[in-house]
Structure formats: structure tokens, C-alpha cells
Nucleic acid binder design. Structure first.
Lengths: 341, 341
DNA sequence: TTGGTATGGTAAAACGTTACAGCAGAAACG
DNA sequence: CGTTTCTGCTGTAACGTTTTACCATACCAA
């Protein structure tokens, strides 16, 4: 069975008895400048559009206008509840502005991030939003050189021309969190780190060390477990932290909520109570954090709103006729103290 | 600052001293049929590609070939941990096959599902994968008429020509689950339903009623709370279920894990123990289900693998020169009994 | 009349690819 | 040596839009 050809603007024009140009102008709702079309022809064109079931061909349009109306978003691990929230936020403004969204899940593999770069270059997307874990500045520059707008969420605001960044400056929040633990009397505070070759992983680790230093607590290597932001690594790390060769921690700061929650369960399975025996806190404030028992103390970054902000930076840049200077927007953090500490 | 033009196939051809046609053939790695190109020319073309940093323009290519290499996936609620897993599965095979992925989060709004249809029609995506909650058969037909391959995950296998379906026939699993509860001695089994105008919501509700009937347990309207698949509705529903005007349930079957987990916490906050006082089970087997305490009894549908299967159905259909008949692939369920029952 | 200026349109050339048909030259064959 | 058959390549026409420049007519003022 051969499919009947999808109707084009030419068909519409013929049907309405006008030129292709006119049909195009009507469909695109042009009116400014010296484009004038009588109400009567408008009607006829729309009528033809309706009877033929015409839908514009996005490829042709993009080819001509050099605009794809496509945004891409790269996340390190879509299974982490943090990122779907971010994506939702991005999608809300993207779709309100007429953009569709390409989503790439790097699944924590560096080469998938690289592949992302290649893909968007071919696709000629209008803009990208990324939470890069492995990509270097040179990769970003390659993208901007291809005239693609970029907004990144990052802790290292390495000002690349034309790249907007949502600046994750969580020093204050991290200090607040650690100080909160200290105020509760904790001295042996452990850290479950994220992947350390990522910016977020390093940032949180550094924040932990800095806050300890400020409080005059010596750093103890045995109280740090190097993890990967995922739940699966946690049981093993807890094992290490509570090894009998050194005094056990009384509090744990995990690099994200996913690990913190996993830690709480691991502790419970060892017969330890949270927060009575060990206090636990996380980072992200994912939905589960508020719901669980004990409710998790954490740092909130309202991911949905962050997504919206990133998308907004992007569409502003895209909408502007002149080349905007890059911006660094700091993002608000909130220390959310709940039952787990 | 005006950007330097991105180089095209013409530039490559000129640089390599060959025709555009030849350049195209080399880049696309054509060799079959009567296309023959000497090794020497090949080298020169690739050399030119490299020095010019040439990247094919996807829009132009799509326009010409009528293939976008784009797949779209529609999910009802990306914040439900079930769907990111599905998306990941889809992406794994999609990207292995050279497709990029458009993701649409309906956020539980019917009109966003409608918008999805419009979007993919314009985009001329090659195929779509959907978990439609509100869309009707006629919407699907509209999509197939536009020559777009469709694979849906659905419990109502309404055989539309050209639409593959991953058939969610969970009757056996549901019976197994309820029978497990009955075997444990439960008679007053409550149900926290999902949104009832969705296929999944109705299906699970029906399964619950059927299983009760088979077991000879009378249906009690007061043991059913109409929910929405999200955690936020649960506390109120628990309130109702345990209202003093009727005997309280001793077991709860929630329409998905997200609600089941919320229910467990709501019960704990009321001072009830799970499973000693009330047994709770869910549906989906999201990652949290295994990790939490008490670990959740649930029905596993291995979402990542489902995503892979859906994507595979699609790419097979796309790869086939002849029009394949629609297929209905049943999907395996597994009753996962853990600590919560 | 002449010229100027709105008004409502149209023709043709892009945008960057790929598909199709064809065409030289060399080699093979009788 | 004439014909056929490979080999390796090229020219041109699409694909469906939007943009630019231009063209009729009609109307109005001088």
C-alpha cells in the first residue's frame, strides 16, 4: 500500500488559487513590514489548509531559516530523581516558547557525553542545556562556535564567551549544613562522596572539607567513602565507614539524596537508628526526601525551577537579535532541616 | 561579530577536487549497487572533511530523504521513577541505531498529550513510543496516516493497523498478588487506585475487583480510595480508608509503587506498623521499592527492558522495506514478594 | 494628464542534501 | 580493430520552505 503524499504548501496554494509565497505568508501569520494580504485571501488559504490537512514540514523550514526550534538537554543520569524534575522545568518553558526537546541520558558514561556533542552538532539544535560531568571547556567552545546557544549548570563558572551558567555556589549552604551537624554535637562527620571526576562531586567534597576546617575539626581520611552518586555503591561504603579499625562516625553527609537514602536503609539494616545513633543528610531535596521516614535533612535546589531558569536563559539568548554577553546566574539554596539529623 | 559559515558538502567537494555527488557518496559510505569510488578519492574526501570540520546538515538530509532519524517518546509523568527507566531503555537502542530522542512529559495533562501529536506531526519524526493515558484510537490513526511508526504500551490492545503494542496483560500477576495477601490471612484488602480515566488505572482497579471476586470476598466500596498515581493524594486517602465508620483494612494494594511507598509512610505516621498491622504492596518495582525498609512487595515489569523492547519494535518496523503487520508483544510480569506484606 | 503612493500580490532564488541518469575512458573480448 | 562491458565519476533535478525583489493595478493630488 502506497501512502498518499502529504500535502505541501504548493497544494495549499493551488487549492486556494494563490501563489506559494502568499500561502506561506498567511500560514506564518506575517503582517508586519510591507507584507499585505487581504482578509478574503487569508480566509481562502486557511480553508485550503484545513481541507487538505496541511502541516508544515519542519525540515524544509529549518533548512531555509536555519532554525530548528529544537533544544537539547543533557543529563548525567536520568534515573536520578533529580534530573527528571530538571527536565520537566526545562520542558515547561521550552514548549511554551515553541521548542521541542531532545533528551540525552549520559548514563554516567563519558563517551555518551561526547556522543551528545556530535549529535547536537549534526542536528543543528538552536540551544543546549547541560549538566556536564566530563565535558571540557573546549567541547563547549566547539558548540558555541557552531552558533548553538549554551546554558550549563555548573559549580565552576569558567566563563566561556557566549555560555550562560547557572552558578551553583553552595559554599554557604554546605557550611550551614555542616555547622548544623556540629551544633547538634557531632564531631565525627563522615562524607559519602559522589563521583570525584565530576564537578558536583568535587564541589561537595571540597565544601565538606572546608566546613570542617572552619570548625576546627581535623580531616580524617577514614571517614570518607568515594562513591558515584548512585545507591548501589552505598552499602559497601557504609561497611568501610563503620569498620572496627577506627571510631565510627556519628553523622554522615552524603553527596546527594539518593545516596543519603540508601545510607539510611543500610544503617537500619545494621541495627542503627537514624538520627539517634547516626545522623544523615543529603543534597538535592528530591521528592522522596520529604516523604520518607525519617524525613531527610538536605539542601534544596528546586530543580524544576532551575530547569525553568536555564531554559529561560536560553530562549532569551535565542530571541535576542544582538549577541548577548554571557551571564552567570547564582542559584538560591535552602537548608532544609528535617528529622534525619 | 558575524559567524563564519558552517562548511557544506560543496566546500568539501571543492576542497577535494571532486563533485558534490561523490563527496556525498563517500561521506555516506555508499558502496553497493553501481556506486564505485576509488580508494584514492575516498581518502581525499575524508581529508577535506577533516580539515574543514564538516558536519552534515540534518535538516537538508531529512528534507531530501524523508527520514528524520528522530524518535519521540511520550510519558504521562516523568517525575514518576517508572518512566525515566523506560526512557533510558528506549534511548539505549535508539541511539545504537542512530536515532535521537525527543521526550515529551505530559505532566498528566490531556491537552499536553494532544500537543504531542501536533508536535510530532510537524517534526515528521520517524516513529513514536507512547504510554498514552488520554489519547484515543483516532489520534493514533492520525499518526499512522502520516506514515509515522507507532509503538504503544497499553493494556487495551485495540489493534490499530500498523501500531505495535506492548501488551500489558497483568491479570495473572494481579491475581497472584491478591492471592498472596489472602494466603497471608487478609480479608479486608483496600485499593489505592490510580487515575481512573487512564487505562492503567482502570486495569489495576478491575484486576483488584476480579481477584477479590474469584476469592469470594465481597467488594466494599469504602475500601477503595480513588487516587492519581502520585504521592500527594495518598495521605488524604489513608485518612478515608481508616475512618472510624467502618472496619479498617489489614492490607493495601496501591496502583503503583509511588503511592504504595507514600502509603507506608502515612501509615507509620499514624503509628501503624508495616507489615504487622497493615500489609502494603505496589506495582512497578521502581528502584526505591527494593531499597526501602520495609522492602516493598510489588509487581515487576522491568521498565528498562520494556523500553528496549518498544524501541526495538519500532526500529524493526522502520528498517523493513515492506509494511509489517502490527504486532502485540505480551510482556512478562513477576510477582516480587518482599518485606511489606 | 502626470506622477506618486498605497495595496495586494507573484516569480525566482536560495537553503544543503541525495537520487537518477548518463558519460567518458580503460579494459576485455571476439 | 570494432564492439561491448566495466570503472569511476559528474550534472542536474528534486525535497518544501522562506526571502528578496519586483510588478501590476487603483487611487489620489496637483
Amino acid at each position: 500500500m502506497t501512502h498518499k503524499r502529504r500535502s505541501t504548501l504548493r497544494d495549499v496554494a493551488r487549492q486556494a488559487g494563490v501563489s506559494v509565497t502568499t500561502a506561506s505568508q498567511v500560514v506564518n501569520g506575517r503582517s508586519g513590514g510591507n507584507i499585505r494580504i487581504s482578509e478574503a485571501t487569508r480566509q481562502r488559504v486557511w480553508e485550503a489548509v484545513r481541507t487538505l490537512g496541511y502541516t508544515p514540514n519542519a525540515s524544509a523550514r529549518s533548512l531555509r531559516t536555519r532554525k530548528t526550534n529544537l533544544l537539547a538537554v543533557l543529563v548525567p543520569d536520568i534515573a536520578n530523581p533529580f534530573y527528571p524534575q530538571l527536565i520537566r522545568g526545562v520542558q515547561q518553558v521550552a514548549s511554551a516558547e515553541g521548542y521541542d526537546l531532545l533528551v540525552y541520558d549520559a548514563d554516567d558514561h563519558p563517551q555518551r557525553e561526547k556522543a551528545f556533542v556530535e549529535a547536537i552538532l549534526q542536528r543543528q539544535v538552536d540551544g543546549v542545556i547541560m549538566v556536564p560531568f566530563f565535558l571540557q571547556d573546549e567541547d563547549l567552545e566547539r558548540i558555541t562556535r557552531a552558533n548553538i546557544a549554551v546554558a550549563v549548570m555548573s559549580g565552576a563558572p569558567s566563563m566561556i564567551p557566549g555560555v550562560d551558567v547557572l552558578k551553583v555556589d553552595d559554599t554557604a549552604a554546605l557550611s550551614g549544613l555542616i555547622n548544623h551537624l556540629i551544633a547538634k554535637g557531632h564531631r565525627r562527620i563522615a562524607h559519602l562522596s559522589g563521583t570525584l571526576n565530576t564537578i558536583a562531586g568535587r564541589g561537595r567534597f571540597k565544601g565538606y572539607r572546608r566546613a570542617l576546617k572552619e570548625a576546627g575539626i581535623p580531616y580524617d581520611q577514614r571517614l570518607v567513602g568515594i562513591g558515584n552518586f548512585r545507591a548501589d555503591c552505598v552499602p559497601g561504603l557504609i561497611e568501610q565507614l563503620f569498620a572496627p579499625d577506627h571510631p565510627a562516625p556519628t553523622a554522615i553527609f552524603a553527596a546527594n539524596d539518593v545516596m543519603a537514602i540508601a545510607a539510611i536503609y543500610a544503617l537500619k539494616r545494621r541495627g542503627l537508628r537514624v538520627p539517634e545513633d547516626v545522623a544523615v543528610c543529603g543534597y538535592d531535596n528530591i521528592p522522596e526526601a520529604a516523604a520518607m521516614i525519617p524525613a531527610l535533612t538536605t539542601i534544596d535546589q528546586n530543580m524544576q525551577q532551575e530547569g525553568r531558569m536555564l531554559a529561560r536563559l536560553l530562549v532569551e539568548r535565542l530571541g535576542s537579535p544582538t549577541r548577548l554577553p554571557e551571564r552567570a546566574v547564582p542559584f538560591e539554596f535552602r537548608l532544609v532541616i528535617r528529622e534525619s539529623t
